[in-house]
Structures are given as structure tokens and as C-alpha cells.
Design a protein around this nucleic acid. Sequence first.
DNA 1: GGTATAACTATGCAGTGCAAACTTTGCAAT
DNA 2: ATTGCAAAGTTTGCACTGCATAGTTATACC
Lengths: 191, 191
Amino acid sequence: MAKDTYHHGSLREALLDAAEDDLRQSPEAVPSVRSLAAKLGVSSTAPQAHFRTKSDLMTALAVRGFERLSAALSETETLRGLAEAYIGFAQDNLGIYRLMFSTGTRLDGDQQLREVSRTAYDTLRAEIARLFPNATERERNERTLAAWAVVHGLATLASEGRLSSEAADDTRPATLARIAADMVGGVTETA
Amino acid sequence: MAKDTYHHGSLREALLDAAEDDLRQSPEAVPSVRSLAAKLGVSSTAPQAHFRTKSDLMTALAVRGFERLSAALSETETLRGLAEAYIGFAQDNLGIYRLMFSTGTRLDGDQQLREVSRTAYDTLRAEIARLFPNATERERNERTLAAWAVVHGLATLASEGRLSSEAADDTRPATLARIAADMVGGVTETA
DNA sequence: GGTATAACTATGCAGTGCAAACTTTGCAAT
DNA sequence: ATTGCAAAGTTTGCACTGCATAGTTATACC
């Protein structure tokens, strides 16, 4: 993965790849810029040419994450499917998922991040609208918000290992998704 | 807040107080141990006598947070009140709240943390049991989990400023709590 | 009143992000 | 082809971090 020419050619992407790789191998440790540079056989400050700050790098990674999440969501139709995809994504991409919703990653700072984040949300909103055609605009908004919150909450708590010992022993995406969908859709509307 | 004697006397508590103070003033920046020591007029490594690692200090702070959260929850009765208290706590104690659910703070490592975390959860569980007396054990478990997830999800998303621009403009605890309670309690059961 | 020990200091190390100044390279215009 | 220039990468260095280690001081206990 080291470079042999002076110009790496695609250091920007390589950095993101490397960061993602590290994050996948140990999701609890945010990789240092220096370690990424070292792994790519490049000087410690080379990344600065592509990302002004570390935070910028992480934000770029978060954008990647949202894109992939959106892709995963758009592959399903049902509410339960969406929930399962969301929770599954969180569990399979724990490091990036944390980054996507971490404090450092501010939505207001990055235009691209805001857009790609909105895309994912709109997918959910559309499904809610389909499920509750008679609801008012406001009801739909609130239901969408609540739906997102349950799913996001479950995904987060499960990923951080907060459910294991007390709240739930079965933390598989499918199981949690069922619980979430039951709560949002209600028993009546599903029929 | 500086010491004049060689032995500070209550450095442990002072460190926690100082950390909480910093966290309250700028919730997005986790204070450094060194800065806390400096603020208390104590050498950089003095804290090590009381907390083996920084993570230990943060965990102790998280315990404080759970205690206070439990106290806030126990002051109300209704589901909606619980939700409002929870969300309000998150917004008013953003720094500590993040710490309580951050990756570094592992439940499995600290006995005390596990207990105090469970206490808060049990309060919610009791209320759910009261609301749904006819539900099976399993149903109650699932509803409790879902309830926690919505509330926690809303609290987290609101605190991190993830709702503002797209999902909800009104992020006041009372409003979010109503949405959460509606979802959990359903319209039928509330009557 | 001595002494073990908990609480604190001093020093130092490895790592971190980042700024600043410099060097190499590719590309584009002449 | 030559030159000029901007982009990409290097070197150096600074301030800060957590933490290990070794030495110092005061306090509590017998």
C-alpha cells in the first residue's frame, strides 16, 4: 500500500480507505492521522494537503458512511426492512457509524454531509407517508421523527453494548427491527 | 480553588467537580487531566493517585451522571414525565450525558456504573408495567426497551443538533417527550 | 515518637494535531 | 523545448496529551 512515486496519485482516497480499514479492525479507536500517513508510506503532514484538519478527514469519512447507509436503506421497502438495514449497518460499520453521529461531525459545517444525511432521512419519511396516508403533515413528521429515534436509539445502544446484560439478550438486527417496527407501525396499521 | 496545604484533602472530588465544570462550559471538549490538575493548583500527575487512568476518571463522572439522572427520573410518575426528565437531563448536562453513553465508558468494566445504570432503567420498566398490566413479561420487556430507545434516541439526536434543520424545529424536552409518549403509550392506552 | 503509607512532585517518554518553510513534480502556456 | 507555477509532499518544530517511574512530604496509626 506504499507509494513509489513522489506523488501518491490518490492520497485522499487512500487515506479514507486506510482510516476505514483501521476503524473496521478496532472500532473503538479513532486512528491518528500520523498512523494513516505512515501506513501509506507518506510523511506525517502529507494529509494536510488534502484535509485541512483531522476533523475534515473524519467528516469525509462520515459522508461515505451516510452514502452507504442510504444505499442500504434504498434496497428495502418495508418499515421493518428499513429498521433492520439501519441497525445492521450500525453493527457492521460500528466505527464509521459512531463517526457519523459523533459530536465532532457537525451537520451545520458541511454542506455535503447535510445533503447525504437528509437523503437517508427522506427514505424513512417516504415509507412513513406510505404507511399512514391519512395522517396530517404534522403527524407524519412526528411519526417519522419517532421512528428514526427508536431505530437510531436501538442501533446505538446495541452497538455500544448497552443492552446486553439487562434490557435485551437478543440484539440481532432482525429482532430489534421487529420491536421497532411494532412500536412505530402499531399492530393495527400493519394489518 | 487552589490548595495551600501539601495534601489537598479532597482532590478526588475536586477533580470530578472541576471536570464537570469544564464540561458544562464547553460540552464538546473533554477536559485534559493536566488542565484539571493545573486548575486545582496541583501537579500534573497528582490525579493518578486517585484515578489510575483518565478513563477511570471519566467513568466516575458517568456514575455521577447516572445518579443524578436516576434522581431526576424518580421525581416523576407518568411516562411523559419520565421522557421529559430524561431529555431535559440530556440537554442540561450534555457533556456528562455524552460521557455516560460514550464508547470509553464500558458497562462491563465498572460494577458501580452497571448498578446505577440499571436503577434508571428499572424506573422506566416499572412505569411500563403500570401502563400495561395485561402485557406478558416479554411484551413488557420489549416495550420498555423500545421506550428507552425512543427517548434516548430523541435525547441524543436533539443534543447533537441532528434534528434542528430537517426533522424537527421544536426540540424542547416537553415537545419531544410528548412525541415519545404518544409512540410508546399509544392513543388507546393513555385514555 | 517512630514509621508505614497515602498523597503529592519531578522528570521524562511516546504520541498527537498542526503550523511554517522548503522541495519536488507535473502541467500548461509560450 | 523552456519556463513558470501551483499542487502535492517533506522537514522541522511546537504545544499538548496520557502515563510510567522514581523520589518527596505529610498524615495517621501503633
